[in-house]
Amino acid sequence: MAAGVGDFGSGGRLDPGVLMEQVKVQIAVANAQELLQRMTDKCFRKCIGKPGSSLDNSEQKCIAMCMDRYMDAWNTVSRAYNSRLQRERANM
């Protein structure tokens, strides 16, 4: 009984629980794709000066480092934004 996307339970009745789970999974996938795409773009710009015949060692090291720093940056931004929201909520 694998529940695929679009399979909303039996009897034609929509099971809200199943629906919510599927939506959550899809949101998580979309967010991961978004991060992956932006991270690839940024780290390509930083690390690949002149595209050579292969991804050389120093480029791979740079990309690995860039990925970690991008995650750090993401988390820092998320925290800063969150604390700003908290402050504004407290001032209302």
Binding site: N31, E34, L35, A73, V77, Y81
Partner: peptide, 16 residues
């Protein structure tokens, strides 16, 4: 957060 990370990365990141 995605949008601001991308934007601020340009402003704040030299060499990772």
């Amino acid at each position: 957060v995605h949008q601001m990370t991308e934007l601020c990365w340009e402003k704040c990141m030299d060499k990772p």
